[in-house]
């Protein structure tokens, strides 16, 4: 089979943190070449969507952050787990106890949180204290049918110069202590990628997902039928190229290189 970028591509999904920009204290910085790469994609006529498990800030803040470093994203192009879980909560009449960042709370303002009958956890950063995790645990233990939603299940990500624990660690903590299995909303779930595909009106086999997380981005995209490409930026570590279960369709130095390959591959 020909290389990943030479087969037909109609749509591109991009992860945000670690691909477009590196998050960190003070708002973060664009990854070199990414601003130009996104512009090229937008003018190429390929469909483009952004798929992120980012939940530490509101969707509005995330877009403002990205646009302040030079990107131009709109809410409609942005797929994050919060709207997806809000939809599920309403469909199933669930009222969440939230373990999220203080800022993220406002994205849940339309959801009934009285007398909670489930727990939603997202990357809560400093709100991941013993006390807060214990409260979530005690609520789950008190329910006859405990339901735990985890917005993503990432192991870690890069913040500033350091790797930090992602929501997956705390999802595991609650799973272990309550003897239950969390329902994951966000990457790497197939249903999450399908929402973005449906929005573009494209089938999975004509789309490529580009991300820095070998499991969440690359493995998840492949499981949904897309090609998964890994960038050597963000949380990337050399051992990702020898991962025990996931092999990327392509590995590139950064988004800029990926986009150049795609545009060259599609024109020839």
């Amino acid at each position: 089979m020909s290389a990943w970028h030479k087969r037909k591509i109609s749509g591109v999904l991009l992860d945000i943190t670690g691909v477009l920009y590196d998050s960190g204290p003070g708002g973060g910085t664009a990854i070199p070449g990414s601003l130009e790469a996104v512009k090229k994609l937008k003018s190429s006529g390929l469909s483009l969507r952004f798929c992120s498990n980012e939940t530490t800030v509101t969707r509005k803040t995330l877009i403002e952050k990205l646009n302040s470093v030079g990107f131009s994203l709109s809410e409609a192009e942005l797929f994050t787990p919060v709207p997806a879980v809000c939809k599920i909560l309403k469909e199933r009449n669930l009222r969440p106890h939230l373990l999220v960042t203080n800022e993220c709370l406002s994205d849940f303002s339309t959801v009934d949180q009285n007398n909670p009958n489930c727990v939603v956890i997202a990357d809560a950063e400093t709100n991941f204290s013993y006390h807060n995790l214990n409260k979530a645990f005690q609520l789950l233990k008190s329910l006859d049918n405990p339901v735990l939603f985890s917005l993503g299940k990432g192991k870690y990500y890069k913040s500033g110069n350091d790797l930090v624990l992602d929501v997956g660690a705390y999802m595991k903590a609650l799973e272990y202590s309550c003897d239950l299995q969390a329902e994951v909303v966000g990457k790497p779930e197939k249903s999450f990628f399908n929402t973005a595909l449906k929005d573009m009106g494209l089938s999975a086999d004509e789309c490529v997902m580009i991300g820095d997380d070998i499991v969440g981005d690359v493995g998840g995209a492949q499981n949904a039928g897309m090609r998964g490409v890994q960038v050597r930026t963000g949380k990337y570590r050399p051992e990702d190229e020898n991962h025990s279960t996931v092999k990327a369709d392509g590995v590139v130095d950064n988004l800029s290189q990926a986009v150049d390959l795609i545009l060259a591959g599609q024109s020839s």
Partner: peptide, 19 residues
């Protein structure tokens, strides 16, 4: 005052993220 998390959940959190 009831049930409280032991060390196990925090061990499994670190196990999961660090491999």
């Amino acid at each position: 005052d009831g049930l409280n998390l032991g060390p196990g959940p925090f061990v499994s959190a670190l196990e999961y993220s660090s491999g």
